[in-house]
Simulated assay, not measured.
Amino acid sequence: MIIAEIGTSHEGSKEKARKLIDAACDAGADYVKFQWVYASEILHPDTGFVKLPTGNIPLYERFKELECPVSFYKEMLDYVHSKGKKFICSPFGLQSLKELLEIHPDAVKIASPELNHYKMLEALADYRKNKCEKTPVILSSGVSTLSDIEKALSITGKDNVSLLHCITSYPAPENEYNLRLIKNLSNILGIPCGVSDHSLDPILVPALSVACGGTIIEKHITLSRKTSGLDDPVALEPEQFGFMSHIVNQAKATLNHYGIETGTKRIIDQISEQFGSEKVEKVLGTGIKELAPSESLNYGRTNRSLHFMKEFEKGHVINEEDIGILRTEKVLTPGITPEYYDLVIGKTLSRNVKSGSGVQFEDLM
């Protein structure tokens, strides 16, 4: 399965979104993927700034600019289907998940930072439990531990669920990809695994992921790396994406023709001729699940934690509107993990707290 991640590269333009869909389909994608963005589901307004060619702007405001109505996504789903391809989308909270499920996507992708958004995972699990046919779910596992993945799967279940090994770094260093982990994760967890690739090369990680047993490759696509989309600098342009699809299909054909053992060796040997055996061995890695060096400092900041949405004084009784399950990102302090959300609601504050600050156990009586 080849997923072309458009994400928010369309920047709200239907015309650009259709051009991206056309490019993805022509470049060999099986699935075309979008992101259903509501800024308030992702970040606190005081989270910090993002560097863009036009200067530094508040990250929250940048996400606000990327919000689209339900009709936008429905039109894109219909257009993807008209091209004979499948539509997949990432929600980032309860509202976007509800609206996404109402248009019946071909699959739901849970992005790496939302792997511990337990309230959203629970809502998704409830929806799938009440349907005769379970909507396929793909979980991404960047900036996560094995126990984080197992916790998420304990909520979603494993029926029609796949996993993407991922490094949450933009761009992600190929040497840190540890692709031998794909087969190990699949064996440990008992579900199909692939890779979400944020590296810049169209061949190295995608081809080797097939050799390592990967069943899915996801990569960003853009009309041009010089445009202003948030992920455009690490995306493949259409010609590169098409080349990647060709290489992936060649690798699949090699496995089918020669069998797993001989086919895997042939793929690795061919890639080693181009990139060098030392480089390839580093990309293949140890197969042990660890945080990659490039993402380890973001653990607890990129994924979700609990944050106060306003400034509150000591003695305030916390209700659901007071707490956000958010990414910490830039300048705020991470809070306790979302698994404690229900415990926090109804508690009384033991001290004054600032808007945006991460919830700490010391804040609660």
Results as ranks from 00 to 15, higher is better:
I6N: 03
T8Q: 11
E15K: 13
L20P: 11
C25T: 12
F34H: 00
F34P: 00
W36A: 12
F49S: 03
F49Y: 03
K51W: 01
L52I: 09
L59W: 00
F63V: 00
V70H: 15
L77V: 08
K86E: 15
F87L: 07
F87V: 04
P91K: 09
G93W: 02
K98F: 09
E102W: 14
I103D: 09
S112L: 00
S112Q: 01
D126K: 14
K129C: 15
P136A: 06
S141M: 02
T145A: 13
T145I: 13
L146R: 14
L146D: 12
I149H: 10
S154T: 06
K158L: 12
D159V: 10
T168L: 08
P173M: 11
P173I: 06
E174P: 04
N175M: 05
N175S: 10
L179R: 00
L179W: 00
R180S: 07
N187H: 08
V195D: 00
V195F: 00
V205N: 06
A207D: 06
V210P: 03
G213D: 04
E218K: 00
K219N: 05
R225V: 07
R225M: 03
G229N: 12
D231P: 01
D232Y: 01
P238R: 07
I247K: 15
K252V: 06
T254M: 10
N256D: 13
Y258W: 10
I260Y: 08
T262D: 12
T262Y: 14
T264G: 08
I267D: 05
I271Q: 06
F275K: 15
V280K: 08
E281V: 11
E281R: 15
V283H: 04
L284A: 07
G285W: 11
G287S: 07
A292G: 06
A292I: 04
E295R: 07
H307A: 08
E311G: 11
T328F: 06
K330A: 03
T333N: 12
P338V: 08
E339F: 12
G346N: 08
G346P: 05
K347Y: 07
R351P: 03
V353L: 09
S357A: 04
